[in-house]
């Protein structure tokens, strides 16, 4: 379980392995903010290997989205499974985020 950060061109890609929950949300926040401070502006969070996001995890995504936008950056989400998509739709966060079905589609959308 953790967060794997890689570069694809000028896009910083973060893989969420396992879960994004109250117990590890600060770790994701710290990693993204470090990259933002180092000059990254395009972020893709990939949930292909994510089983579960809780409300704290949703909250940290909202918070990061705001901070990235404040620095004129962009955040994309990709590869939400059916359960995760249900959570985004229930909370209407699907209207707040740019969500792509796959990584390639997300990378092409910047």
């Amino acid at each position: 379980m953790g967060f794997d950060v890689t570069q694809q061109g000028d896009v910083t890609v973060i893989n969420v392995e396992g879960q994004l929950i109250v117990g590890n949300r600060q770790e994701l926040k710290q990693k993204v903010l470090e990259e933002l401070e180092n000059g990254a502006r395009k972020f893709l969070i990939d949930f292909a290997n994510t089983g579960y996001i809780d409300s704290s995890g949703l909250g940290v995504l909202v918070s990061l989205s705001k901070k990235i936008r404040e620095q004129d950056g962009e955040l994309r989400l990709a590869n939400l499974n059916d359960d995760l998509r249900t959570l985004f739709e229930l909370t209407k966060l699907d209207t707040l985020f740019h969500i792509s079905d796959g990584r390639d589609e997300a990378l092409a959308s910047f």
Partner: peptide, 18 residues
């Protein structure tokens, strides 16, 4: 209600709703 437009960009408040 966290789904109201005024609350949508707040980081918290979704647990009970879910």
């Amino acid at each position: 209600d966290p789904t109201l437009p005024a609350n949508l960009s707040r980081p918290g408040g979704r647990g009970i709703f879910l």
